[in-house]
C-alpha cells in the first residue's frame, strides 16, 4: 500500500465524491419521470402509474427495460452523425454544469472562480441538442421545433445572464461558494434580488424547455417537435436530459437565492445536505406544478414577453443594485 500517500487518498476520495454526485443527479433525473407522472395524475384526479412495485415506485425499472430492448432505429433519411450526437449533448450539457454546484461545505465537484459563467456556457451549448436533433431528423415538424427553440434561445439567453449580474455585483465574485457564504452572513438573495429571482426563474424554465416554454416540443401542434424521429434509448436520453435540467436549475436556484446548504435563521447547521435537498425538492415540485397548471403561450408571445418585460426588468434590477452597491462603499 505504498502508493496510498495522503495526497493520493485525497484525490481518490474527491473522485469518488464526484462520482456519487453525478450518479445521484442522474438517478434523481430518472426517478423524476415517475414522480412527475404520479403527481400529475394525482392533481388531475386519477392514479397515474401505480402498478409496478409499491405505489408504482419501480415504474422506472419497467420503463428502462422497455427502452433498452426497443429497436434502436435510425430512419434512412437522417444525417446519422448529428442524429446520434444530439441526444448525447442533450444529456451531458446540463449534467456537466452541475459540477459548479456546492452541495454541502465539504461536498461539491469543482470550486471554479468562474462558476456562474460556467453554467451560462453549458446552458448555451445545451441548445445545440435541440437544433441538431431538429435539423438532422430531416422532418418538417422536427425542423419547426428546432426553429422555435433557436428563436426562444435568442430571446431568453440575454436576460438569463443579466438576471444574475445583480448577485455578482453584490458578492463581487462569480464563485458559487462565495455567493453562498455571502448569503449566510447577510440575507438570502431572494429578498434583495426579488426581480432577479423572478426573471431567472422564468429563464431557468426556458433553459430546460419545460412547460410553459415547451413550444419546441408542443405535442398538440407539431407532434413532439425536435425528437419526433427518435426511438429507444436515444429518445430516453432526451427525456432524462430534460429532468437533469430540472434538477440542475432547481439546485442553482437554491444556491443563488435561497442560501444553498444553510437553513433559515441559521437553524440546524449540522445537516447541510438535508436543507439543500429539501429546498431543491421544493423547486422540482414547483416545476411539475407549473406544468400541471399553466397553458402554453404561442412562441411569439414568449419572445415578446422576454424582450419587452423580462429584459427591461433585469436592466432596472442591475442598475439599482449597482447604484446601491456603489452608495454602500
Amino acid at each position: 500500500m505504498s502508493w496510498l500517500s495522503p495526497e493520493m487518498a485525497d484525490i481518490v476520495i474527491q473522485i469518488l465524491k464526484s462520482l456519487v454526485i453525478m450518479l445521484a443527479v442522474v438517478v434523481c433525473g430518472a426517478l423524476l419521470s415517475w414522480v412527475e407522472r404520479r403527481l400529475l395524475g394525482l392533481w388531475q384526479d386519477r392514479y397515474g402509474p401505480n402498478r409496478v412495485g409499491p405505489f408504482g415506485a419501480f415504474q422506472l425499472g419497467a420503463d428502462m427495460v422497455k427502452m433498452f430492448f426497443k429497436e434502436d432505429w435510425n430512419p434512412p433519411f437522417v444525417d446519422k452523425l448529428i442524429f446520434t450526437l444530439a441526444p448525447v449533448v442533450a444529456m451531458s450539457a446540463l449534467l456537466i454544469a452541475f459540477v459548479v454546484i456546492p452541495v454541502t461545505p465539504t461536498w461539491g465537484v469543482a470550486d471554479l472562480n468562474i462558476g456562474l459563467l460556467f453554467f451560462f456556457a453549458m446552458a448555451g451549448l445545451a441548445v445545440y441538442a435541440v437544433l441538431f436533433a431538429g435539423w438532422s431528423s430531416n422532418n418538417k415538424f422536427a425542423l419547426i421545433g428546432a426553429l422555435r427553440a433557436s428563436a426562444q434561445t435568442l430571446s431568453y439567453e440575454v436576460f438569463l445572464g443579466l438576471s444574475l449580474m445583480g448577485i455578482v455585483a453584490q458578492v463581487g465574485s462569480f464563485n458559487m461558494r462565495d455567493i453562498v457564504d455571502y448569503q449566510a452572513q447577510n440575507v438570502w438573495f431572494i429578498i434583495p434580488q426579488i426581480l432577479g429571482f423572478a426573471t431567472f426563474f422564468i429563464a431557468g424554465v426556458a433553459v430546460t424547455h419545460r412547460h410553459p416554454f415547451d413550444q419546441p416540443e408542443a405535442e398538440q401542434e407539431i407532434a413532439d417537435g425536435y425528437h419526433i424521429e427518435y426511438a429507444g434509448m436515444k429518445w430516453g436520453m432526451f427525456f432524462v436530459g430534460e429532468y437533469i435540467g430540472i434538477v440542475m436549475v432547481s439546485a442553482l436556484l437554491v444556491t443563488l437565492f435561497f442560501g444553498g446548504w444553510h437553513g433559515p435563521f441559521g437553524l440546524l447547521p449540522e445537516v447541510p445536505f438535508l436543507w439543500f435537498a429539501l429546498k431543491t425538492g421544493f423547486f422540482i415540485m414547483l416545476f411539475i406544478l407549473l406544468r400541471a397548471s399553466l397553458p402554453r403561450p404561442r412562441y411569439d408571445q414568449v419572445m415578446a414577453f422576454g424582450w419587452k418585460v423580462c429584459l427591461p426588468l433585469t436592466l432596472i434590477n442591475l442598475l439599482v443594485t449597482g447604484a446601491l452597491v456603489l452608495a454602500a462603499q
Binding site: G134, W135, L154, E157
Partner: peptide, 13 residues
C-alpha cells in the same frame, strides 16, 4: 459558441 454560432446554425437550417 453559445450565441453567435446558434445564429449561424439557425440561418443554415
Amino acid at each position: 459558441a453559445g450565441a453567435i454560432m446558434v445564429l449561424f446554425v439557425f440561418v443554415v437550417m
